[in-house]
């Protein structure tokens, strides 16, 4: 069986500085992987490179998504093929209602896949259904994308998009940042509802706390641009107790 995501010996530079020095990991459908590590270990770089953000130079290695060379694809193509990045800091887009944004995005993806665009009533029904399950009031969707949203609302909006787009790979970049416990629980419940055998998730976080709500199958510890240790969910608890210092020495 082909893995959903295979990262092989990935080396990435930003402005002549190497951030990832040969990172390898394999994620299969249905699995939830957590990536933990201290600031500057390259966690966010990995998520950006998978999503195709400009400004990163891949100098070695490869990324396969469902067996295809992901690095050859434009970022919008990756999105249409099912790569979704839930941003740590979702941006605001004034004057563009969330509803309009969602419809434009869904239809762009469908068009890229050669599918028919959603008819407006079908789309509205779908959004209503998903929004209700995430406790998102329809009023929020009439406002500009993320404009004036609280931290919790922004993250819920990310989960809403995830639920609408039904991607096969979800990367959650520090979803817990800026959230209180209640908001975190709502967002995590939304994510858990999306767990399925043909969908994988990569959860990037500093803290073990998030992993109480989104329980991972595999935990990777990153340090200085490499995965230095992988294990089960108990590894996260162990990290919480001992900290990252020991791994920084390993990497060095």
């Amino acid at each position: 069986m082909t893995a959903l995501l295979e990262v092989k010996d990935l080396q990435v530079r930003v402005d002549d500085r190497e951030i990832l020095h040969g990172l390898t990991m394999t994620v299969n459908g249905g699995e939830v992987h957590a990536i933990m590590g201290p600031n500057g270990s390259g966690k966010s770089t990995l998520s950006h490179v998978i999503a195709g953000k400009p400004g990163y130079e891949v100098t070695g290695g490869e990324i396969l998504f469902k067996g295809e060379d992901l690095l050859e694809m434009e970022p919008d193509e990756r999105a249409a093929k099912g790569v979704f990045l839930a941003f740590q800091y979702p941006v605001e887009i004034p004057g563009v209602t969330t509803m309009n944004f969602l419809r434009t995005a869904v239809n762009a993806q469908r068009k890229a896949r050669g599918e028919d665009e959603y008819l407006v009533p079908d789309f509205l029904r779908k959004v209503r259904e998903v929004a209700a399950s995430l406790n998102i009031p329809m009023d929020m969707l009439k406002r500009g994308v993320n404009v004036g949203f609280s931290g919790g609302e922004k993250k819920r909006n990310e989960v809403l998009q995830m639920a609408l787009f039904q991607p096969s790979l979800c990367i959650l970049d520090e979803m817990d940042s800026g959230l209180d416990i209640d908001a975190l629980r709502v967002a995590a419940d939304g994510v858990n509802a999306l767990r399925s055998p043909d969908r994988a998730m990569v959860v990037i976080t500093h803290y073990q706390r998030l992993l109480n709500y989104i329980v991972p199958d595999v935990v990777h510890v990153m340090s200085q641009g490499r995965v230095v240790k992988s294990g089960g969910k108990e590894l996260a608890l162990e990290l919480e107790a001992t900290g990252y210092a020991q791994y920084e020495e390993v990497a060095a």
């Binding site: 999503a51 195709g52 953000k53 400009p54 400004g55 434009e74 970022p75 919008d76 999105a79 249409a80 979704f84 990045l85 941003f87 979702p90 941006v91 887009i93 004034p94 004057g95 563009v96 944004f101 434009t104 995005a105 869904v106 762009a108 993806q109 890229a112 500009g144 998009q161 787009f165």
Partner: peptide, 26 residues
């Protein structure tokens, strides 16, 4: 900003669609 464009593109919009959307909002 590059970040706004990338956000839209990550959601499946082409570069030009992304610029068009942001400008029309503006």
């Amino acid at each position: 900003s590059e970040d706004v464009l990338f956000y839209c593109i990550q959601r499946g919009l082409s570069q030009e669609e992304a610029v068009g959307l942001v400008v029309n909002g503006f």
